[in-house]
Simulated assay, not measured.
Amino acid sequence: MGQFKIDINCDVGEGVGNEADIFPFISSCNIACGGHAGDQETMLKVAYLAKKHNLKVGSHPSYPDKANFGREVMDISDQNLIQSIRKQLADFDEVLKQEQISLHHIKAHGALYNQTAKDEELAKAYLDAIDDYKDRVLLYVPYNSVVAKLAKERGFKLWFEAFADRNYNSDLSLVSRKDENALIEDPEAVLRHILPIIKNSKVVAVNGESLIIKANTLCIHGDTVSALKILMYLSSALPKNQVEIQK
């Protein structure tokens, strides 16, 4: 048994098609539910696989923007965004009901995730959209973010999330994907990145500064080219470093 425990999650159902390969190595998943990717067929297929592997299942709502994969800030009214998120979650609920799966968590995707971390009005709209779920599911949010603060005030149960395959700026924001050093793709580099997060609640930013961060769950993006390679490496390397993956 490890001295430390951590959940490892992946964003899935996004068209990569590698879920059957990566699911044995993770403990929770965030399934795209039609905003940036996914449809009824992919939701059903991935949810079935997740159940088979005994994973904690979460919904992964986004800006309704498949053209940009939900990675660009969208000019949309609060009312339309709330309506879209509620439809995404309702569609996913139908899938979970069909497969007899309980919803474990909700995690926003892409630009919606990043913007709600710092934009109070957007965070309020997002929380309004998912308010009906607050008494029964966890909300995956970044540590020390605007959305985390507001969600806690409103009674949501939170898990703090950090990113295993992404570098951080000195304000705990993620390095933009437009920058060369945004991604961490080497498995050993990922391990060096996450051990201080797990053991010491610290992360080293790209400027070399050591920052306080807390994480109940670590994300490895399913569409990262080396995702499977990273996960396979961590499955053996983490126990050697007294870390147990929290199934």
Rank of each mutant, 00 (worst) to 15 (best):
D65L: 08
P24A: 12
I194T: 03
D91W: 03
S173D: 08
V16N: 07
K51G: 00
P64T: 12
V206D: 10
N80F: 07
G13I: 00
N68A: 08
E209G: 06
G110K: 03
Y140D: 10
P64L: 14
T116N: 08
L112Y: 01
F92E: 08
I76W: 12
K66E: 12
Y126G: 03
I22P: 00
A129D: 04
L122F: 03
D165Y: 01
H193R: 14
E99Y: 08
N167Q: 10
G110P: 04
V73N: 15
Y126V: 04
A108I: 03
E209L: 11
I212Y: 13
N114V: 14
S226G: 12
G208S: 11
I198Q: 02
G58R: 00
A182V: 07
L172W: 08
L172I: 07
L96V: 03
K229F: 06
A50C: 10
E161V: 04
P187S: 13
N18A: 13
I197K: 09
Q3F: 14
F25H: 05
K97Q: 07
Q115C: 11
V203H: 02
L49H: 03
Y143M: 10
E121C: 12
L218A: 05
D171R: 10
V225F: 11
S226V: 11
K52P: 12
K124Y: 04
K157M: 07
Y140C: 06
Y48K: 12
I212C: 15
M43P: 00
N18R: 13
L55E: 05
D21W: 01
Y168A: 02
C33E: 04
I85N: 02
L195M: 14
V137I: 10
S77K: 05
I184H: 00
P239K: 07
D75W: 13
K178Y: 13
G38Q: 02
F92H: 06
I184M: 03
V225G: 06
I130A: 04
G2P: 02
S102G: 14
K214T: 13
S77G: 14
L138F: 14
K124E: 07
A237W: 02
